[in-house]
Design a protein around this nucleic acid. Structure first.
Lengths: 214, 214
DNA sequence: ATCATTTTTAATCATTTGATTAAAAAACTT
DNA sequence: AAGTTTTTTAATCAAATGATTAAAAATGAT
């Protein structure tokens, strides 16, 4: 048995311990290929360990997946909540921060959104509850701002559209990158530069959408 | 052997022939769960046929998948090309038509984009060539329009951003629907209505983006 | 050094899964 | 009806795959 409940020995924190190596190998493969297409033997090979160790540390493929999934998921929503709940920022500033945080996160972890979207589709209910909990306060906050703004006559955009546009403009280029790069013919470097540009552009666009011309 | 090359007998066109039933069952499952997660036995059950018939008609799971994949893919890009190459339409009109065609298509086949995105990610090269071919003329056309428009000083938006925004605003709500509905708390009916609204809104937004305030 | 505990390995198991085969059933031809 | 072809089925195969086991190796404690 692996010493789960920290027993006598000290564990070297976050080092490249076997356990950590397996988890990171699993994260790479699961995130890239999904649950069904990932073989436990591939994970073992990627981590450079014996197949049995995977089960020794994590009991089963499913358990390992759930663990990775949870961590990926938390990573994914961290960007929004942190910035959005900062009461010292104006609405516009929050949008700027969220877009920036997201572009940075997606630049580091470009496969994350597809992974999340796939898993949510596969298990509509499993993640759903968690998601709703974590995101509830932000939703409340953003809705309130938009609705009062609408009532004041300054804007006239449904919160649904605003959120769809915010996420769509920010996340989609990463999700659809393979198609997008083919269609537009941009190089990897150019793509990265465009993503950086969007940090500045998306907030401007979103603002423009809030006050449509006609 | 199945009579592939139309032999003596007449095949009842598009009826619910066994072959067609298998293909449609396969399409549903492949599109919903992806290649790896779909079992041939599930397809057989969904189609209400014996497992061996799947191989009798389509040789292998992979062959069946490739067939479905190709048809899905053609379906997916049909909407753009048809409308975009219509020389009698203005640029603005083309955008309106594309958005409308896409929203309608995605309303009918909401799982298609995730399927395409997943498969392209899995086989970067396989589909890529086909995609590039089919889309090349449209790309040429749209780029030309945008670049001349930029040079004339009327706009100043990179074609890359324009295309990313067009696809992002149109396709993403369908891809991210599970998340989006949770976050915003809208019902299925409301979602459909919002998508219909977006046919009108997206072209307006895109136009607004082309002429940014500052 | 000796012993106990933890970690790692090779071998193996049991199930799942894509595919095949041989025979039965159905459809069609004459 | 008899014969031929096409379609369908049940049974089975072979490989892949998740998991387990028993023993070896490594690590730590006394």
């Amino acid at each position: 048995m692996p010493k789960t409940a920290r027993s006598k020995k000290q564990k070297p924190a976050k080092e490249s311990s076997t356990e950590e190596r397996i988890k990171e190998a699993a994260r790479r493969l699961f995130t890239l290929k999904g649950f069904a297409a990932t073989r436990t033997r591939d994970i073992a090979e990627e981590a450079g360990i014996n197949l049995a160790l995977l089960n020794y540390y994590f009991r089963s493929k499913q358990k390992l997946f759930d663990l990775v999934m949870l961590e990926n998921f938390q990573q994914f929503i961290k960007g929004i909540t942190v910035n959005f709940m900062d009461e010292t920022l104006s609405f516009d500033q929050r949008i700027e921060r969220i877009v920036e945080a997201y572009v940075d996160m997606l630049t580091r972890l470009p496969d994350l959104p597809m992974f999340i979207l796939n898993e949510i589709r596969g298990n509509p209910s499993k993640i759903a509850a968690k998601l709703q909990m974590e995101i509830a306060p932000m939703r409340q906050n953003m809705f309130t701002q938009l609705i009062t703004s609408n009532e004041a006559g300054k804007t006239n955009l449904e919160p649904f559209h605003f959120i769809a546009n915010l996420i769509g403009l920010t996340v989609f280029p990463f999700v659809g990158r393979p198609i997008l790069q083919r269609v537009t013919g941009v190089t990897d470097d150019q793509f990265q530069q465009y993503m950086q540009d969007r940090k500045r552009l998306i907030p401007v666009w979103l603002k423009a959408m809030l006050t449509p011309p006609k």
